[in-house]
Design a protein around this nucleic acid. Structure first.
Length: 436
RNA sequence: GUGACUGUAGCUCAACGGCAGAGCGUCGCCCUGUGGAGGCGAAUGUUGCGGGUUCAAAUCCCGUCAGUCACCCCA
């Protein structure tokens, strides 16, 4: 490579095929979101830093693209679609009819160290219900997410569901302080990945939790069973902790919703250790996990009843979540789940030579006037074999050949590139053939 | 943000102190109005970039940029 200009780490160029896959995935989400009654919203890329600072946790703040603009304002690139939406809702609180259901598919920026499936600019595919405290809205989102992933062709995925209130209760039960809540959540979240012993070690050594408290927490997490059994066991164990019982009851409401709509149990699971990192969640939290492969979580979701309230001093409960388009595309490409043809072009009109350019031009123009995506071969003096080769390489299904013989008879030759078959047709017949 | 590994032709890789190579692809011709198969031929490049050591650097050293992996965290 002799190029001296290189794109920034963690940013990407999208050529035709990648654009097509992304559009496809985004359209699947849009359709499902709209089916469930969500309406679109878009917000700016650049926001005042104040809407993010202090909301997302210390770890998140290290990843902010934050700077002073020309006017000395403290601004940052949108870190998260949902927080930006909360700002917009707070600002327009008197114009919006609540409960407000909206979806938003936009880029966000995080200054992380890039890796596969992890970029500094990525697209969040987000839907939320604002203005309802009812956890049936949470359940509806999960149902909708499952539907979207199924529509994309996934089978081996699962919504892992928990409740921050339960986590909170467990921490109370174990005797830890509320300040230790988020650090404990983050460590517990790793249980399936690194195991009980390492989590214990991390709690004690890294998070500074007393050994007996760490042990008590982990003891509760050693409860096992299916969703119903676990709910029962947790309720029994934590019966004297009101916040835990509240959380468990909410989960029960969610699972009852699933039963009512006949959701297959393989697509969801009560997963008590799931925490999600972001600090703002207040109730049910869940992620969508692709089980095979190592891409992990493709969506982070949950209830956040306090954020909008912080902007306007009036409580507005909300729930929803974000799917990561890039991670889904990564798996879809790797598994070849869709065959993308980046070629939208239906037909190439070849050019015999400069004397017949106008004949070719007129054909191309006719085709375009009939809404057929057409390439008029872009170079005048190339040989026919080169023009055909071009069509072949680009995967263009038809080629029009028009030279002296055809012009004399006022016809064209239409070649089907797949079969090699060639027909002499009028322009009208050509349009008919290509259209179908 | 921390640590490890990697970076050579469009792609996959070789050369590991001594003239920078192969396969695939690309281009041309065989084929003056017909692509895919085949035959023949050609071009590939400041070895990511910048510096240093050396008679000599793709190769060793330092820096930098980018990618992958593990942390951190997360979509």
């Amino acid at each position: 490579m002799s190029t001296k200009i290189q794109k920034l780490a963690g940013f990407r160029d999208y050529f035709a095929e990648d654009v097509k896959i992304r559009e496809y995935v985004i359209n699947v989400f849009k359709k499902v979101f709209e089916k469930y009654g969500y309406e679109p919203l878009e917000t700016p890329a650049l926001e005042p830093s104040s809407i993010f600072v202090g909301e997302l946790g210390d770890e998140a703040e290290k990843l902010f693209y934050r700077f002073k603009d020309q006017g000395g304002r403290d601004v940052m690139l949108k870190y998260d679609v949902m927080t930006s939406m909360c700002r917009a809702v707070a600002e327009n609180i008197n114009k919006i009819t609540f409960p407000y259901k909206r979806y938003q598919i936009q880029s966000v920026w995080r200054s992380e160290k890039p890796q596969r499936g992890r970029f500094r600019e990525f697209t969040q595919c987000d839907a939320d219900t604002i203005g309802s405290p009812d956890v049936n809205c949470d359940a509806e989102f999960i149902q909708m997410g499952i539907e979207a992933l199924k529509n994309l062709g996934f089978q081996d995925f699962r919504a892992n569901i928990n409740n921050r209130k339960l986590m909170n209760g467990i921490i109370q039960f174990a005797g830890a302080s509320i300040k230790e809540f988020i650090p404990i959540c983050i460590s517990i979240d790793k249980l399936p990945k690194i195991g009980k012993e390492k989590v214990k070690k991390e709690l004690i050594e890294k998070r500074g939790i007393k050994a007996e408290i760490a042990e008590k927490i982990l003891e509760i997490f050693s409860l096992s069973g299916n969703t119903d059994e676990l709910l029962f066991k947790f309720k029994k164990q934590l019966k004297n902790i009101p916040i835990a019982i509240e959380g468990l009851n909410e989960l029960e409401t969610i699972f009852n919703y699933f039963a009512a709509v006949g959701l297959e149990t393989k697509y969801f699971q009560f997963t008590p250790y799931i925490a999600r990192g972001l600090a703002y969640y207040t109730g049910p939290v869940w992620e969508f996990e692709i089980i095979e492969g190592d891409i992990g979580s493709v969506a982070g979701c949950g209830r956040y009843d306090d954020i909008i309230g912080k902007f306007i001093g009036k409580s507005v409960p909300a729930t929803g979540g974000s799917f990561g388009i890039e991670r889904l595309v990564e798996v879809i490409k790797q598994r070849k789940m869709i065959q993308t043809s980046s070629n939208i072009v239906k037909i190439l009109v070849s050019i015999f030579n400069i004397d017949f350019f106008n004949n070719s031009l007129k054909i191309a123009d006719q085709l375009r006037k009939n809404n057929i995506s057409t390439i008029l071969y872009p170079v005048i003096n190339d040989k026919l074999n080169k023009q055909l080769k071009y069509a072949d390489r680009k995967g263009i299904p038809y080629v029009v050949i028009i030279g002296p013989e055809e012009v004399a008879k006022n016809v064209v030759k239409l070649k089907n590139m797949k079969t090699g078959e060639q027909k002499t047709l009028s322009i009208e017949e050509t349009i008919e053939t290509v259209k179908t």
